[in-house]
């Protein structure tokens, strides 16, 4: 388990939980990224601007943290993310993630973080299902093909 980073994983997780908690307690919204992205559409005009602001803040803060945090805390890994998936596969994967999260009404954040902490049975079933199919897919692509 040479790549296991329990401390930075826990700190990052606590921050994500804090974000989801604040968005709920103050704004009454679920911090599910697939829902926020998928719902940024013209058919509910009042629901667009906050979604775009949230996603923009998320991307900018991630970009800044990625560049600044390893300089402040030398223990944090600084190497760039590894994108080894071929472009055509990435496009298919993106479509599947878009269709699947829309049908099931959530992703790792909406079902995983928000749903599990709300003790939702639907989210629990969704998380077990996407973990299982994610693991099966990685097994096939890494160990069978």
């Amino acid at each position: 388990m040479e790549n296991f980073t329990p401390i930075s994983a826990l700190i990052g997780g606590v921050l994500i939980g804090l974000s989801a908690g604040l968005l709920w307690a103050v704004n009454g919204r679920i911090a599910g990224i697939s829902g926020i992205l998928g719902g940024a559409l013209p058919y509910r005009p009042n629901e667009i601007s906050w979604r775009i602001l949230f996603l923009a803040a998320l991307a900018v803060a991630a970009g800044v943290t990625y560049r600044v945090a390893p300089a402040l805390v030398p223990a944090l890994p600084a190497h760039p993310p590894t994108f080894s998936t071929p472009l055509a596969t990435l496009a298919v994967a993106g479509l599947l993630v878009g269709i699947g999260t829309r049908l099931s009404g959530g992703c790792t954040s909406g079902h995983g973080v928000c749903g599990l902490s709300r003790l939702s049975l639907r989210s629990f079933a969704a998380v077990v299902t996407f973990m299982l199919f994610g693991a099966l897919t990685v097994f096939v692509t890494r160990h069978v093909l």
């Binding site: 998320l58 991307a59 998936t85 993106g94 599947l96 269709i99 049908l103 099931s104 009404g105 199919f133």
Partner: peptide
């Protein structure tokens, strides 16, 4: 819909290693 959608999402997640949050973040990283 819930279980089928989650299964479809899981396949896409396993193929790419990406789900929506990290993908949005990576726009500003790589």
């Amino acid at each position: 819909r819930l279980l089928g959608g989650a299964a479809i999402f899981g396949v896409g997640w396993g193929l790419s290693g990406l789900c929506p949050g990290p993908a949005i973040a990576d726009i500003a990283i790589v």
